[in-house]
């Protein structure tokens, strides 16, 4: 990053900070308990030195508790950027992101870690399991960082692996499992701290069709049990499982609509 770029970023960050302060003092954002995610005028600009790339351009979005949402778009549409911000891996440059009522823009990196640990369950395209740890140890990991007692941790990890259908493989290493099984371990791990938000980034990207549908059915089941699930994908048939589809293009939301016919369990069988 050039000196100029650094300076610019500092100014941006400063401006965002000031704005956040101003907002907090004057008009506290409306906060409804049924709104899990509230994004207000969100912008994200990448400074690659020569050119500024606008990742997200003035996004406004609200996701309620218990929704099953897919975020769609081509690569470069800004959906990954939004995913990083939703997952509190990145902070917005301008605008606000309230997760469960907490203003993410104002948080320090370690506070973000805490939010990720307690509020978000991640499911990644490439599973991102730690390869030298067994399935049960991988599931225990978020609870380790949440300082859950060892015995409790183990009990819950086993319970979660049973819930995703891997009760017989809890001590297997990731490389001893198929892609679908690994993704199930990842889902169990995402559920470990019972977070209000499950965030899946192309969860079926590395899976064959059959496994993909199994995984999506698992998400549907979680949704029916009351979880809020956000799936980022570029595949229509994956998005079809969800209740609400948000489409992105060039850093903007181009459509946000209810899925007219979400795939139910019965329908999947026919496909």
């Amino acid at each position: 990053m050039t000196e100029k770029g650094k300076l610019r970023q500092t100014v941006f960050a400063g401006a965002a900070g000031l704005k956040a302060l101003a907002v907090r003092k004057t008009e506290l954002p409306e906060y409804h308990t049924d709104e899990l995610i509230r994004i207000v005028n969100l912008c994200k600009v990448y400074d690659t030195g020569a050119v500024k790339v606008i990742g997200l351009n003035n996004i406004n979005l609200t996701i309620k508790r218990g929704e099953f949402v897919s975020i769609m778009g081509q690569s470069g549409s800004g959906k990954s950027t939004l995913m990083n911000i939703l997952g509190c891996l990145d902070r917005p440059v301008l605008g606000h992101y309230y997760l469960d009522g907490i203003d993410i823009a104002a948080l320090e990196p370690d506070q973000l870690s805490l939010i990720r640990n307690r509020k978000i369950g991640f499911v990644f395209q490439s599973f991102n399991l730690i390869s030298r740890m067994s399935a049960v140890k991988n599931v225990e990991l978020p609870m380790t960082y949440a300082r859950v007692a060892k015995k409790k941790r183990n009990e819950r990890a086993v319970e979660l692996l049973e819930r995703v259908g891997l009760g017989g493989r809890i001590h297997h290493m990731p490389n001893e499992m198929s892609g679908g099984q690994r993704q199930r371990v990842a889902i169990a791990r995402a559920l470990a701290n019972n977070p209000p938000l499950i965030l899946a980034d192309e969860p079926t990207g590395n899976l064959d069709t059959a496994s993909s549908f199994e995984i999506m059915e698992l998400f549907s089941a979680l949704h029916r049990d009351g979880a809020t699930v956000v799936v980022v994908t570029h595949e229509e048939n994956i998005a079809a499982f969800t209740d609400r589809i948000i489409r992105f293009q060039d850093g903007k939301i181009i459509s946000d609509m209810k899925n007219p016919g979400p795939v139910s369990e019965g329908k999947t069988k026919n496909i």
Binding site: L89, D110, S113, L141, P142, Y145, R189
Partner: peptide
Amino acid sequence: TREIGIRKALGARTRD
């Protein structure tokens, strides 16, 4: 590096 990324995503703090 990737393992560190995973751990951080799952809630590891800088100190951890």
